[in-house]
């Protein structure tokens, strides 16, 4: 029994670390961002092309972002970093579900609904989710998903 508990503990510790401490992630990102193009190209040269292109495109998007939006997203990322690894993974899986189950035009409304939901207290959230407009636009499962996402998103 003791061995089993030890393995579970070590396993959980390992999983937590596999998820990579957010501070390290942010520092690695900052290092990558500070590199000049040649250095970055050298650093990424051994990566599969699809992943390398994705990193470059995201970095480029980040660099081109307006300062106000960058600051807002940095704030959200900072709060996301403060969440426990399992909470982070939970949010990632909710977002995956959101992207995979809702058609694109509905997701646009979904994002608007999320932004609004996050401003509301729990009671007001319930009311908003049960409103005819929301019921008209989203089915039960979709509204439940939006509620769960709003609940789990960082401030």
């Amino acid at each position: 029994m003791i061995i089993r508990v030890l393995i579970i503990t070590l396993g959980l510790a390992g999983l937590g670390l596999w998820a990579q401490p957010p501070a390290q992630q942010a520092r690695a990102l900052e290092k990558l961002r500070r590199m000049d193009p040649e250095e970055r190209e050298r650093a990424l040269q051994d990566m599969p092309p699809a992943r390398r292109r994705l990193i470059e495109q995201r970095l480029d998007r980040w660099n081109r972002m307006a300062p106000a939006r960058k600051q807002r997203l940095q704030g959200s990322f900072e709060n996301f970093r403060q969440m426990k690894p399992e909470q982070q993974e939970n949010l990632r899986s909710l977002v995956r579900k959101f992207n995979e189950t809702m058609p694109a035009e509905k997701r646009v409304d979904g994002r608007r609904a999320l932004t609004h939901l996050r401003k509301l207290d729990p009671e007001a959230r319930k009311k908003f989710l049960a409103s005819p407009r929301m019921k008209d636009r989203f089915n039960d499962g979709e509204r439940e998903l939006l509620a769960e996402m709003a609940e789990n998103m960082p401030d």
Binding site: Q24, L32, D46, R72, R111
Partner: peptide
């Protein structure tokens, strides 16, 4: 940048992208 750090940066960018996508259009 070590290989492990590239993966960490990649993960950070992915999370940032996720948070960006969650903002209202």
């Amino acid at each position: 940048l070590e290989a492990q750090e590239i993966e960490q940066a990649e993960r950070a960018l992915e999370d940032l992208e996720m948070l960006r996508q969650l903002e209202a259009p």
